[in-house]
Write a protein that binds this DNA or RNA. Structure first.
Lengths: 203, 203
DNA sequence: CCGAAAAGGTTGACAGCGTCAACCCAATAT
DNA sequence: ATATTGGGTTGACGCTGTCAACCTTTTCGG
């Protein structure tokens, strides 16, 4: 049945299985007992590896951030910095569309306190750094922008736009609005265009 | 103890109490049994008024949308349309900051299926219409914009930016980044400026 | 090499949850 | 006057996370 290659430790299998559940049904449906059941072990076995539910969740989230960062890095590259930024924005939105439940897990779900889970925190920072570095390398071309507009703010603005669209597009609220599938494409391209205009008012 | 004016029906008190719990501890902590306990009734009493947990949640969410819409409408008004739009954006971000758990409830939590809860759906649409109408009245000044950029898309773009910032600012992810309180003010003003630039590239 | 300890698995219990079922009383409608 | 229904009750079921106790097997120090 389990075609997945068996990981060395049960600890890893717990994370795998938890991620399966989250991808299929959302983080709200995650239960340690169900994880144990799928692994064919007793309901307390996972507790030998994770002290609480939050700890297994933190491990899953850390893995998601790493995967998300890799997904962003794997985008097609462009010579032109602005085109490359656009490509990264599209990659961001693609991830949110392809893996909505994992995206929700990372950005729209209540996570265990980050300070208690440094590994999760580190992986989250790394994902953000990818975006920030992209913008930093853009800004060296335009020193005036750097001075009073640190790249970190640009990165957070960009992230806000991308996250806002990604989050709204998968939100239940939007189901209450008439939004054709074709509209989604338009929204994405319009947002990317305006994001470019906002960051680069000159051209 | 209960200084709140007693509503006529237990149904209303259920919604009040549920909202209290959500504002204090978040939607995840909401339980019908706790609602019943606080009202001093049996754990099944609320079920006489709401068939399932989702139905009480939908009622609470509907009330939140109505309150949110009223909050947006209560903003200071400006003659100039762009200034008025800016004021609405600030009102949006203020609401998210003042009532983070209610904001999360509306936009970042898994809601009961909207089609099963038409009242909730209607109130959500009304809140969105406020934003859309603001943009529509802007666009009559500039017919060229109306033609290939329907106001609905502008409204969704604007909403994405606002929601993205509001959502990220209260996200657990951001706790992993070094973000000073002063930075938040800067972020808000920068986002509003860029939003204006994106919507109104001419000036 | 042997005994201690630790790692990793087990079963059993507990309280809290949403929900179903049955019962019960008072007001209302026929 | 009687039947129906609205609104309350208690009790149960299976689910959850978590604590406690117990039992092997592996590892390691003397």
């Amino acid at each position: 049945m389990a075609t997945r290659a068996k990981p060395d430790t049960i600890k890893e299998s717990c994370i795998d299985t938890a991620l399966d559940i989250i991808e299929a049904d959302g983080v709200e449906q995650l239960s340690l007992r169900e994880v144990a059941r799928r692994l064919g072990v007793s309901h307390q076995a996972p507790y030998k590896h994770f002290p609480t539910r939050d700890h297994i969740l933190a491990a899953v989230v850390a893995r998601c951030y790493a995967e998300f960062a890799a997904f962003l890095e794997a985008r097609p590259r462009h010579q032109d910095g602005w085109a490359d930024l656009g490509e990264m924005g599209l990659a961001y939105l693609s991830y949110a569309r392809e893996f909505p439940l994992k995206y929700r897990l990372m950005f729209n779900a209540p996570l265990p306190a980050p300070s208690d889970h440094p590994d999760m925190m580190a992986k989250a920072r790394h994902a953000f750094d990818i975006l920030q570095n992209r913008l930093t390398s853009l800004n060296v071309r335009d020193v005036a922008v750097v001075v009073d507009h640190p790249a970190r703010h640009d990165a957070l603005f960009t992230w806000s736009c991308l996250h806002g669209l990604a989050s709204l597009m998968q939100s239940d609220v939007l189901h209450t609005l008439p939004l054709e599938p074709a509209d989604r494409e338009v929204l994405v391209s319009r947002l990317m265009a305006r994001l470019g205009a906002a960051l680069n008012p000159g051209c």
